[in-house]
């Protein structure tokens, strides 16, 4: 556990030292604010034009914005280290491949956690303006944390597949598009078992059910299994170097 935290702390200090964290936090909060207060029509009803105290647009916007920001955050995690060779040095330290992957994942998740904490003032102001279903909001935050962690795991996996950060970024975006939109579209255009399957695979299905305030173990298992699969794939990709052929 100590090594995981050491690695996570190094990653976090890199995020903060290199302005990446501030740019992402600032961008995320600004855009979320924009959609929540002014242009919510895209994701629901915003506060100003509908004249209703609703935080729904925030949750609608955040789930998409997180996807882009996390792709930008995670793209360097393995791609850059592979390219510069620091990954080799790291893996010859007394740590396992798992600890390296978990450390980087933990760094991402903590940054997402900070981003979500920073967005709490939106919730408080909306709650001050009018009645809000507090239970649903906290569930929404849990949903965002789960979705964010899932994006991070996908991003880490994509980053381990290449030594080019741009390729890693685009791969993450593409996988995100598939999980966010393509599966929902497919389920709308198919019927029967196929529709059910695509509906189950879509991130939005599970996210919206949590955000409504229904925390079902089925949804949590969905997110955890994607996270588990991606992190396990990353470890497998890392251990490729050890395959004796």
């Amino acid at each position: 556990m100590g090594s995981i935290i050491t690695i996570a702390r190094r990653e976090l200090s890199t995020f903060y030292d290199s302005m990446i964290a501030y740019m992402l936090l600032g961008g995320f909060l600004a855009l979320c604010g924009f959609f929540t207060w002014l242009y919510g029509g895209f994701f629901g009803r915003d506060v100003f034009f509908s004249g209703q105290a609703s935080i729904a647009p925030f949750f609608g916007a955040a789930v998409v914005l997180l996807w882009i920001f996390i792709a930008a955050l995670s793209m360097k995690l393995f791609a850059e280290e592979t390219k510069t060779g620091t990954l080799e040095l790291l893996l010859t330290k007394p740590v396992t491949d798992w600890q390296v992957v978990m450390g980087k994942f933990l760094a991402c998740v903590s940054l997402i956690f900070v981003a979500l904490l920073c967005s709490l003032p939106y919730y408080f102001t909306v709650a001050w303006l009018g009645p809000v279903d507090h239970g649903a909001v906290w569930c929404g935050y849990l949903g965002l944390l789960l979705v964010g962690s899932t994006y991070a795991a996908i991003g880490i996996m994509c980053s381990s597949l290449t030594d080019n950060q741009i390729v890693a970024f685009l791969l993450t975006i593409i996988v995100g598009i598939i999980f966010l939109f393509i599966f929902s579209l497919l389920s709308a255009y198919t019927s029967g078992m196929a529709a059910k399957l695509f509906d189950y695979l879509s991130i939005l299905t599970h996210y919206s059910s949590i955000a409504r305030g229904v925390v079902d173990s089925k949804d949590i298992i969905y997110f955890l299994s994607i996270i588990g699969f991606c992190l396990m794939s990353t470890v497998t990709v890392l251990s490729r170097r050890k395959i004796a052929d």
Binding site: R10, S13, T14, D17, T84, G85, T86, E88, L89
Partner: peptide, 8 residues
């Protein structure tokens, strides 16, 4: 090639 974290 002595790989190092250049931003640290």
């Amino acid at each position: 090639h002595n790989p190092l974290y250049l931003d640290m």
